[in-house]
Amino acid sequence: MQWNLSDDRPIYVQLMETITLAITSGELPAGSRLPSVRDLAAEAGVNPNTMQRALAELERSGLLYSQRTAGRFVTDQAAQITEKRTELAMEQIRVFLSAMQDMGYTAEQALELTRRAIREEK
């Protein structure tokens, strides 16, 4: 995982985002086991309590679950991961549309330009 932490936002929130992205991208597959809190914290270079908090929040959201002795796992509900992935994608699209709107494009025009960009990439 790429731990790019910025200075102005709570660290645990950024850890949650990084782990969520690893789950939705498939880097951490559904049902797979996570490294220990200590290992993850060392990898990210953060305090173990902060990592613990991020993981606890992700458990509450249902993306992770823990089994008392076996450790912590990514949810095995593929539908839930897909849903989260769509949610993240929609967020990006809204950001894009709003930037296009600021430049004076309608949503339809933005879509047309997007199609063109895809054609040109091929």
Binding site: D7, D8, R9, P10, I11, Y12, V13, N47, T50, R53
Partner: peptide, 13 residues
């Protein structure tokens, strides 16, 4: 640290 970041919107530094 995280309370400071959420309350003030900036790093401790």
């Amino acid at each position: 640290v995280d309370d400071i970041r959420s309350e003030y919107g900036k790093s401790v530094d």
